[in-house]
Amino acid sequence: MNRLQAILPFGQRIWLDNLSRELIASGELARLIADDGIAGVTSNPAIFYKAIASDARYQSDLAQLKADTGLSAEARYEALVVPDIQAACDLLAPLYETSATADGYVSLEVSPQLAHDEAGTLAAARRLWAGVARPNAMIKIPATAAGIRAFEVLTREGVNVNITLLFSLPQVNAVWDAYIAGLKARHADGKPLAHIKAVASFFLSRVDSLLDPQLPAALQGKTAVAMSKAAYARYHERFNGEEFAALKAAGARAQYLLWASTGTKNKAYSDVLYVESLIGDETVNTTPDATLAAFRDHGVAAATLAADMDDAFRLLAEVKAAGVDLDAAGEKLQADGLKLFDDAFDALLQLTA
């Protein structure tokens, strides 16, 4: 068992935050699944921009798509990447089956240009879900107000969702409210709950990058981990308590927290900080290639997420006492994240125009 495989007994699953045709065709993704226990894949506009711009395997298909002048740039982009999502889903299908549909998911994001458009998000999510046509696909939606409303509807419809760009506890709670409401509505409709899977992607390194300059040295590099621990405590209250009991009895799954943005941006910190510090049951960590390699090389697997909870809440109180408004920071970080994804998506559409 390598260091990544050693995480699995603690109840956490590691997903890969990367996808390309090269990764699939070379057999590398299959190797990561077999050797490292990778249990899912996430993608985003920046990941696909890099893939399409640098991987020669896309160019022939792109030329044929451009020859069809009736297609929009976005339609060409979707035609390029949906087969990649399908291929990754198929590689993970055995895990999806052997885990009783708990693992083996692949995320595809709706256009970030729809972040504040509920109807547009719903239409895009339904189109992508139908286009991928794999039960272990997961549609990725940003956790804006419009996105959260769409998430509730999609949960009622039985669509798997990765709701993303979460940076604060109020944002996470709003997402869980929508998930539970969607499940209750689906249950009232008399429809099954057992095969619905959703995750809540909580972003880490960007939190510390924003807040560290506002904090004394003793508090720097610690806020994101402390917030994650607080969110995990709240997760257990909501999904392992009375509130969710009836839905769980009807077959519903909890909406796991997924740790995202886990590549360490500050070189003064450990390159496995956002993996080692947050290993715990009923969670997912999606890691970029470099972080995956770093943990494989020198990471230590231990049950860290539920440890030192009192210290985490104490640190958050000290951060607030230092003048930091964590909720306002979360709103800024989400807006900044949307801008980054918007820019990446614009660049993608320029490639496919």
Rank of each mutant, 00 (worst) to 15 (best):
R3G: 05
R3H: 08
Q5G: 04
A6R: 10
F10N: 02
G11K: 06
Q12A: 15
W15H: 11
D17W: 10
D17E: 14
D17L: 07
N18P: 07
N18M: 13
N18W: 10
N18C: 08
L19H: 04
L23G: 03
E28T: 08
L32N: 04
L32A: 09
L32H: 12
G37I: 13
I38T: 06
I38V: 15
G40F: 13
V41T: 12
V41A: 09
Y49N: 10
Y49A: 08
S54G: 13
S54P: 01
A56F: 03
A56R: 14
R57K: 00
K66P: 00
K66V: 03
D68S: 05
G70A: 05
E74G: 00
A75G: 00
A75Q: 14
Y77C: 02
Y77F: 15
E78F: 11
L80G: 06
V82Y: 07
A88S: 13
L91C: 02
L92Q: 11
P94Q: 11
P94H: 08
T98R: 15
T98L: 05
T101C: 09
V106R: 11
S107A: 14
H116D: 15
A119F: 12
G120D: 06
G120I: 07
A123W: 10
A124C: 12
A124D: 15
A125L: 12
L128M: 14
V132P: 09
R134Y: 03
N136F: 01
I139D: 01
K140P: 02
P142K: 05
P142S: 12
A143N: 04
T144Q: 13
G147K: 04
E152S: 13
V159T: 09
N160K: 15
N162K: 04
I163W: 00
L165N: 08
P170R: 07
Q171C: 02
D177W: 02
D177K: 09
Y179S: 09
A181H: 02
G182D: 11
L183P: 11
K184C: 05
R186S: 03
L193F: 09
L210A: 12
L215T: 04
A217V: 12
L219Y: 09
G221F: 00
T223I: 05
A224E: 07
V225T: 12
A231M: 08
Y232P: 02
A233D: 09
H236D: 14
E243P: 00
A245T: 05
L247F: 12
K248D: 01
A249L: 06
A250V: 04
A254F: 01
L257R: 02
S261F: 00
S261A: 03
G263S: 15
K265Y: 03
N266D: 11
Y269P: 02
Y269A: 00
S270V: 01
L273V: 01
Y274C: 01
I279V: 15
I279G: 06
E282V: 02
V284S: 06
P288K: 13
A290Q: 14
A294S: 15
D297T: 12
D297L: 04
A306L: 11
D308Q: 13
D308C: 00
D308I: 00
M309S: 07
F313W: 05
F313L: 12
L316I: 04
K320M: 10
V324D: 11
D325F: 09
E331P: 05
K339S: 14
D343P: 06
D346T: 11
L349T: 07
A353L: 04
